[in-house]
Design a protein around this nucleic acid. Structure first.
Lengths: 228, 228
DNA sequence: CGAATAGTGTCTTTGAGACAGTATGAC
DNA sequence: GTCATACTGTCTCAAAGACACTATTCG
């Protein structure tokens, strides 16, 4: 065991894109290939050591940008992992502060995929390095919980959207269909939606009203930590 | 700014004891007096550097034991704090992984209070060092949320308890009175309570049935992180 | 007996969900 | 007109809360 503890920041980045087979929207995350031991060659979460002159969230945002060329539309701390057995074969003891982030689908389309960066469906992961499989599972659990009682789903959409588009995000995250009528009433009752008076035309059906979110309401309620 | 980041673990420790004036049960936390700069002489959360051969939770449990002579009946990670402006005057950059813990009232009575350790009412704090006031506020918010949808209140009680005792814990944490009839039904409907068939006598009224919690149910649902 | 708390019954309100029905633009 | 989806109405059920009532023990 080493006599020093090093500190790293990693990020679980979610985007919504169609499943390669079903074409239905599902969650994707980018992975990076490890280029050194331990676990050399296997896939891992993007991340790296914390720079001394940089905050934790800033570090997460930076290595998100470096691996995906994207800026997060939502970023939240997930957990600090620091068990002794995280990397049994490693010489170095590392504590990882992990963040999770949401990026917009259209931006994720533009995201580069290189030899060492690969986007995969979040429920169909390859084998991951260290305890990263557990970390992704936990991030998915948090996202699925939080989408039910906050307006973070907005982070996957643009400025304005129809109720059908918002519902599609919820359905993709929760992996079940939702009743359109009841979903509409819940969203209206939440007081977070503002009708714009504009309509989305183009489908072969009645045009749908466009909404935007009330931006005075935080994406998620983090209590006293708001804005940290 | 230093060119190294040091890692510390701190803990917000909650106990239920009567308020000095009202005698109604309220939340208390122990503070330690800082014996070195910065903020020398002011009160702070118990904590210290992470030992290289110790897990994060183990470190929290250790310095909880060292300051209070107690073992936690509940321990959960709160947040990792690492902004650059946490300690503007400090030469050293520190990231703190903060835990929060619950200890039993009877044990807290026995907890030592020395010159450098002082128990204070959680809603009537003195001025605290660094960002510790924000940290306590966040811990209180988490506790008050979690008591409503988990069985962590049990961590303040002994093996068996009456519904009135359990309700008193909820009332103290939430700072409002609860209807005894509705509280009873909610607890019974939760499926977490097991009647023991024994009764608590001694009051000048009908004896109350003693319950215990179903120990196959976790104190709180942390999803995939169960038992970490 | 009265005081005090244990425990039950029941009414109202609220929100979730199931599902039928109406509205309207694209074609 | 037909199709597809937008949007509305309404019924049922479950949980939360207010509050009246009964039960039982102690002094």
């Amino acid at each position: 065991m080493a006599d020093e503890v090093s500190l790293a920041v990693s990020t679980v980045i979610f985007a919504l894109r169609p499943h390669p087979r079903t074409r239905r929207p599902v969650l994707w995350i980018p992975l990076v290939r490890r280029i050194r031991a331990p676990h050399q060659g296997t896939w891992a979460l993007p991340g790296g050591p914390l720079a001394p002159d940089e905050g934790l969230a800033a570090s997460a945002a930076r290595n998100l940008r470096e691996t995906t060329k994207l800026a997060p539309s939502y970023l939240e701390q997930l957990y600090a992992f620091g068990s002794l057995d995280r990397a049994p074969t490693a010489a170095e003891r590392t504590v990882s502060v992990v963040y999770w982030a949401l990026v917009r689908a259209d931006e994720a389309e533009a995201g580069v995929e290189t030899l060492n960066v690969r986007w995969v469906v979040a429920d169909e992961l390859p084998e991951l390095a260290f305890d990263h499989a557990l970390i992704v599972e936990y991030a998915l659990w948090r996202l699925r919980n939080k989408v039910e009682y906050s307006r973070i789903a907005a982070a996957f959409l643009g400025e304005t959207f129809t109720l059908a588009e918002l519902r599609a995000v919820h359905e993709a995250v929760l992996q079940r269909t939702l009743d359109p009528a009841n979903f509409r009433r819940q969203m209206e009752a939440s007081g977070r939606l503002v009708p714009t008076g504009e309509f989305r035309t183009g489908g072969r059906h009645r045009p749908a009203q466009l909404y935007r979110h009330d931006e005075s309401i935080e994406l998620a309620d983090n209590g006293p930590l708001t804005g940290l």
